[in-house]
Amino acid sequence: MSRFWTLMSGLHQLAGPVTMLLYPLYASVVAIESASKEDDQQWLSYWILYSFLTLMEMLLQPLLEWIPIWYDVKLIAVLWLVLPQFRGAAFIYNKFVREQVIQRYCPGIGGGPGTGGHKSSSSPNGKLKTKLADLITTKKAS
């Protein structure tokens, strides 16, 4: 019976890296190579959320040490984000991240108020692109 628990413990320890890193890395490469934009959104959203989760975990580490099931809760949450049946990462991005970040802090991109869903040349992003293009063409001409 102790070998069984040793095996289960090892599988439990492997589940996190496989679920949180290996499968998403593989799926991200597949998404990049596909023509569909929908899977790109899912995996870019996943990496944004995973980075945020990792940052919060680093900041809250002293508190999380007191929660004995934190790893299991995190694993279940990441499974929901990763599994294609749920598309949790795209859901969270569309419902919360896009609404809060894009519309509040970057209204000139991604369909914020007054843009009609496209990037405006008068937006800060458009001005930055123009400045970068001028810089690159100036460097090449020299």
Score class of each variant (00 low, 15 high):
Ser2Gly: 07
Ser2Gln: 11
Phe4Trp: 13
Trp5Pro: 00
Leu7Lys: 05
Gly10Gln: 13
His12Asp: 06
Gly16Val: 07
Gly16Ile: 01
Val18Thr: 11
Thr19Val: 03
Leu22Lys: 10
Tyr23Asp: 00
Ala27Lys: 04
Val30Asp: 06
Ile32Ala: 08
Ser36His: 06
Glu38Val: 15
Asp40Gly: 12
Trp43Asn: 01
Leu44Gly: 06
Leu44His: 09
Leu44Tyr: 13
Tyr50Ala: 05
Met56Pro: 02
Pro62Tyr: 04
Pro62Gln: 09
Pro62Ser: 02
Leu64Gln: 05
Ile67Trp: 00
Pro68Cys: 03
Ile76Lys: 06
Leu79Arg: 04
Trp80Asp: 03
Trp80Gly: 07
Gln85Ser: 15
Ala89Tyr: 08
Ala90Gly: 04
Ala90Trp: 01
Ile92Val: 15
Tyr93Asp: 01
Lys95Tyr: 11
Lys95Gln: 14
Phe96Trp: 09
Ile102His: 05
Gln103Ala: 08
Gln103Pro: 01
Arg104Trp: 09
Arg104Gly: 12
Tyr105Thr: 07
Thr115Cys: 02
His118Ser: 10
His118Lys: 15
Lys119Tyr: 09
Ser120Val: 09
Pro124Leu: 14
Pro124Phe: 09
Lys127His: 14
Lys131Asp: 09
Leu132Ala: 13
Ala133Asp: 09
Leu135Asp: 12
Thr137Leu: 08
Lys139Tyr: 14
Ala141Ile: 04
